[in-house]
């Protein structure tokens, strides 16, 4: 997977996630938790796939940073999935929706920064 492809996938993910979050905050139920889980799982697979293409990290400090960001995103995503599973194991309430949303907020900031850095790097390298 190329960086350009991953940037497109990442931006699409953020847009789709925001649409699901709007539903989460309007009508929190099991169905929306599952839909978010599926979308995040799909993105996790793409992050892993792209991460494999980031070779020779120590030779290039910029790539090293991107790789570390990618690892952080994967960690965030796995934590989010666990959190969703925990909530799904109990009754879904507005509080559980807010808990998920608040954690997604921090995760989204990391993704946005990663995509920006990746875009700058792609632009620099032509």
């Amino acid at each position: 997977m190329t960086a350009t492809e991953f940037i497109r996938i990442g931006n699409l993910f953020l847009t789709q996630l925001e649409a699901l979050q709007e539903v989460l905050l309007k009508q929190p139920d099991e169905a929306i938790f599952h839909r978010i889980r599926d979308l995040q799982e799909q993105f996790l697979q793409n992050v892993r796939l792209f991460s494999k293409s980031l070779t020779n990290p120590l030779a290039d400090p910029e790539i090293f940073l991107i790789r570390k960001q990618s690892e952080l995103i994967q960690q965030h995503l796995m934590n989010l999935q666990e959190r969703i599973d925990l909530h799904l194991g109990a009754r879904i309430t507005p509080r559980s929706a807010l808990d998920l949303f608040d954690h997604q907020f921090r995760f989204k900031k990391v993704v946005i920064k990663h995509l920006e850095d990746l875009e700058n790097l792609t632009r620099q390298s032509g």
Binding site: E18, Q21, E22, L25, K26, L98, F101, D102, F105, R106
Partner: peptide, 14 residues
């Protein structure tokens, strides 16, 4: 009224 940007402001405040 769009919930996501508003609640993201809330996240910063919280």
């Amino acid at each position: 009224f769009r919930r996501v940007p508003l609640f993201e402001e809330h996240c910063q405040l919280k």
